[in-house]
């Protein structure tokens, strides 16, 4: 079994509305797959199918060799799910939440207690362990939710937008937790709307938009697909940016130079930034333009999304917002 997840031609529709259309997806064991897409793209639908919460309309999928429909019950005992809304019980304590999840995985009571303590320590929840979850912060709830989903040591874990709505600091904390998980060999499927998050955590990224897979590969692959690198020149005086642009245009792939007067930058898209850089500098020097800073910038996943869909991730999210429940 090479693939922890093997999705073949899965579709899901609600009446005429197609939530997922002919999706294929393979995730290697022990890797992190980032499922990237705007709100309403179908990420959650796919996760719900793979965690047996939803039946696909057509197609088949296996997780750890179990068919998501025929072996649903077996499958549930080997996966963990941390959903979009932290599924923790307000009136129970943090410890009780984890223990209850463990008992419902049918683990022996002693083992549940030991494992709960381990997880509380690992997720930095020991101090709050015996307080009711009602008083937990958003970040603590997410950590507890994740801890509860890990109680049975599942070899496969699904994280549906694990950091949505968290402050930057809690987000970094949670990233650290996820990285630790991966280093222990857990296979992770992670959905996110944050391009940076996928770049940071995922070995491979699947870009999904309006229920379809539109690109797949490593972060580097995707950036390569987006085409190009950028040479960004910062000049001393704002007026010089235009003159610099006139020089830069000749080197650009598309003969265009983007000027940002506020930042005093001029940037162009090129295939191989490093090799052109020297010529660029010489030409600028010949024109007597004083360069404050120069850089070759790799495309971000935002650029990728724009190249793939013709719109930015943010635009896509606003467009499809009303359909997200």
């Amino acid at each position: 079994m090479d693939f922890a997840i093997d999705v073949r031609n899965i579709s899901k529709s609600y009446g005429d509305v197609v939530a997922l259309g002919n999706v294929d997806l393979q995730v290697r064991s022990g890797s992190v797959m980032g499922l990237l897409g705007p709100n309403g793209a179908g990420k959650t639908t796919l996760v719900r199918i793979l965690t047996t919460l939803l039946r696909p309309s057509s197609g088949s999928a296996t997780v750890l060799g179990y068919d998501v429909v025929r072996h649903a019950r077996h499958l549930r005992s080997v996966i963990g799910l941390a959903g979009q809304s932290a599924a923790v019980d307000d009136l129970l304590t943090g410890r009780e939440n984890i223990q209850m999840a463990g008992r419902l995985y049918h683990m022996p009571r002693k083992q549940v207690q030991k494992r709960a303590q381990e997880l509380l320590e690992q997720f930095d929840l020991v101090d709050a362990a015996d307080r009711s979850v009602k008083g937990y912060s958003g970040g603590m709830r997410r950590r507890l939710d994740l801890a509860a989903s890990l109680v049975a040591n599942p070899p496969m874990i699904f994280l549906d937008e694990p950091t949505t709505g968290l402050d930057p600091r809690s987000r970094l904390d949670l990233w650290e937790v996820i990285r630790n998980l991966v280093s222990e060999g857990t296979t992770v499927l992670l959905t996110t709307q944050y391009l940076e998050e996928a770049d940071q955590l995922a070995d491979e990224i699947t870009v999904i938009d309006i229920g379809k897979v539109i690109a797949q590969g490593t972060a580097a692959d995707l950036k390569h697909q987006a085409g190009s690198e950028f040479i960004v020149i910062t000049v001393r005086e704002a007026e010089e940016a235009k003159r610099a642009a006139a020089v830069l245009e000749k080197f650009a792939d598309n003969d265009e130079c983007e000027i940002n007067e506020e930042d005093r930058t001029a940037s162009i898209m090129v295939q191989d930034g490093a090799s052109i850089m020297v010529q660029v500098v010489r030409s600028l020097d010949a024109e007597g333009i004083v360069v404050a800073n120069m850089a070759v910038r790799q495309p971000t996943l935002d650029d990728v999304f724009l190249a793939l869909t013709g719109r930015t991730a943010e635009e896509a999210a606003t467009e499809s917002e009303p359909t997200e429940n």
């Binding site: 047996t52 919460l53 959903g83 419902l104 939710d145």
Partner: peptide, 13 residues
């Protein structure tokens, strides 16, 4: 409404 049920339904209970 709170999503607790998603957790339960993903468990082998």
């Amino acid at each position: 409404q709170k999503g607790m049920v998603d957790r339960y339904r993903s468990l082998p209970m």
